[in-house]
Design a protein around this nucleic acid. Structure first.
Lengths: 182, 182
DNA sequence: GTCTATAAAGCGATAGAC
DNA sequence: GTCTATCGCTTTATAGAC
């Protein structure tokens, strides 16, 4: 990946996360990254769509290496899931940061990035299900609990932001930790 | 409320729900409602902001009369909550329909409509908490379970749309019903 | 109350100099 | 690789005829 591209990626990601796809204009991207249109189109010849596509691939890659793989490789499955909660809580800054994949799911442009979005949640649910099974859960119970965990995280993010109260997210994660060990 | 305004409100609501605030252009609203700009600005002199504000007020009013009030007035609290799940499931078309309040919470324009959004979720949590207490739940347990129910609904909507699987929403509602009676 | 015409600004994208 | 200038189009909003 080029130097320019990788340097501007975090600011670009935060732009899409904060404003959504439609709300992120090139002018806003320029303000956030410090790069003019010339530089942006040099790095992303296909324009705004490609910018978001690269951002989504980067997010998925981060979760694959930082969350999914450690979960898959954890010697102790329950401890691995606890670390997943740690990483998730840190990533979403205790509910102050929205989930871009979740945000995109709500509106129409979901269709254009459906593959990225589906892959992200599908992988997460699958590796979490496997780990729950390793922890002794029955197969279909594991699948549904994994589904419940992902939905709870997404809902906690929404409600925390809606009511402007990060404690909602923290309590949700604590509840899920407790459910895991009871 | 004027005749024109009330006639176009459902189409207007679906527009904002489907495309979000930034993604809803006046051209799209014209296509959805059949009303030109002249008519729209006659009904909403303050423009697009006012259109969304009126839509949010209408949504809150609907929940107040169709969900919150029946819950508050229910003779049997548990049965009342079950009816709340029925109404919620019907309203969100088993997860195929997004929650506009939740959608708006994700991005920046949340700030502009923060009062509408906060009021919606705050009222819902409060009346649900009261009803759980009437059903015999301890005060703080009731508050947290109400919080968990709202977050679960929002998260189930997000995950159902993300994975394009309405069954996720239905299972979530069923799990919540079960938690209520165990 | 609804329409068409139009304004002024912003949009994504391109061209070409450096 | 970055910039500025510019294109063509869409945006929100207004004006004025009917």
């Amino acid at each position: 990946m080029s130097n320019t591209l990788s340097k501007c990626l975090p600011a670009l990601t935060e732009c899409f996360r904060e404003y959504g796809y439609e709300g992120t204009s090139l002018a806003r991207i320029t303000a956030a990254t410090g790069l003019g249109k010339g530089s942006l189109y040099n790095a992303f010849p296909e324009g705004k769509d490609q910018m978001l596509a690269v951002v989504l691939e980067e997010i998925t890659l981060w979760f694959e290496t930082q969350v999914f793989a450690p979960l898959q490789l954890a010697d102790e499955p329950v401890a691995g899931i606890m670390e997943m909660f740690d990483a998730t809580s840190a990533y979403f800054k205790s509910g102050k940061r929205a989930c871009l994949m979740g945000t995109l799911s709500a509106t129409q442009c979901r269709d254009r990035f459906a593959n990225h979005i589906k892959s992200y949640f599908f992988q997460w649910q699958q590796v979490l299900t496997d780990t729950l099974i390793r922890a002794g859960w029955e197969n279909s119970q594991a699948k549904f609990f994994a589904e419940e965990i992902l939905a709870s995280i997404q809902g906690a993010l929404t409600l925390s932001r809606a009511l402007d109260d990060p404690a909602i997210f923290d309590r949700t994660i604590e509840r899920l930790r407790h459910r895991l060990t009871e």
